[in-house]
Write a protein that binds this DNA or RNA. Structure first.
Lengths: 168, 168
DNA sequence: ATTGTTGCAAAGAGTTTGCAATGCT
DNA sequence: AGCATTGCAAACTCTTTGCAACAAT
């Protein structure tokens, strides 16, 4: 039986996964189907766990978390699943800090950017119309076709600012 | 004899290095002095080559380029010099693409961000007052002390857009 | 039955580090 | 003389891959 978005939806419902972005869902089943891939239990467990959350995971974090309930899953499976999700547009890849790759479920809410606390590592999401405008204007001014952007603000979150000297 | 900004300036002039940002210069000599470091010929050759350019180097690129004129310099020296420069605030580190670390001389001109062509890798710098405003506003709205930001716009530069289908 | 998937261990890529020789001061 | 610096090779970390056993279709 061919892999379809409908079938995948049923699968996700069965797994009780809260995933309501139709476009990205189609992307995934198309991506799987287009590559001749199958529904494997373990891969789906990784995807379920990942999609069900709102965190910005390192591979290690996701691996450790999944191992708690599914000790039989290996590192490479997590790597392979995340890579697949990224290719299908279901995961966004970030490099907030040096030598650190983080994966975030895409489509969980609308486009956003991040505040990154350099002290505790906390990541705060924000959306800003202003950035979209800026992106368009800057692209225009530089004769550039913008596809996407990365915008991070680094500093101290409210909690950590308290501990260090005031910044204002 | 202690390492001073003046002495360093003389050194740079001797080497014919175009480096006119006083503040960053002070940072470097202070950084060197503070760490009890010495003026070594090889490190200075790396620094000279790096500071004299306006590129966004990978370690490998810088290494290859320096080796053309200084075949005696090793990989680790380049790594160590760039790391030092980054610590002293004379080099900015970027991760424009996955698995790629690039170093850019800081202080060569005022703060700027980057357009990154996903086709040919070209990097275009731009400055935008708007982003500074946004950073301040967003930080305020989220009770966050902003120190710095990273903003990249990914897409196609004018040359590469011509080859692919129009985007508009 | 056929072909994709997995875990493991090994291999890669990028970066750092221990150490003996060398260079600054 | 005393200590920083260097190049090399080895070590390290993160990620990918080959392969034999296993699972999905």
């Amino acid at each position: 039986m061919a892999l379809t978005a409908d079938r995948f939806t049923v699968y996700l419902m069965k797994m009780n996964v809260n995933f309501n972005n139709k476009r990205v869902l189609d992307d995934l089943s198309n991506c799987l189907a287009g590559k001749g891939l199958r529904f494997s239990r373990k891969r789906m467990e990784v995807i379920e766990h990942f999609i069900g959350s709102t965190r910005h995971y390192t591979v290690e974090q996701l691996y450790d978390e999944i191992r708690k309930t599914n000790p039989g899953i290996g590192y490479s499976t997590v790597y392979r699943a995340l890579k697949l999700l990224a290719e299908c547009g279901m995961a966004k890849v970030h490099h907030f800090n040096e030598n650190e790759t983080r994966y975030e479920p895409a489509g969980k809410n609308r486009d956003h950017d991040h505040l990154v606390c350099e002290e505790c590592g906390r990541i705060i999401e924000f959306t800003s119309e202003g950035i979209e405008h800026l992106q368009r204007r800057i692209a225009l001014e530089n004769d550039f076709s913008a596809r996407r952007h990365e915008f991070q603000i680094y500093g101290l979150c409210s909690k950590c600012r308290g501990k260090e000297g005031r910044t204002s």
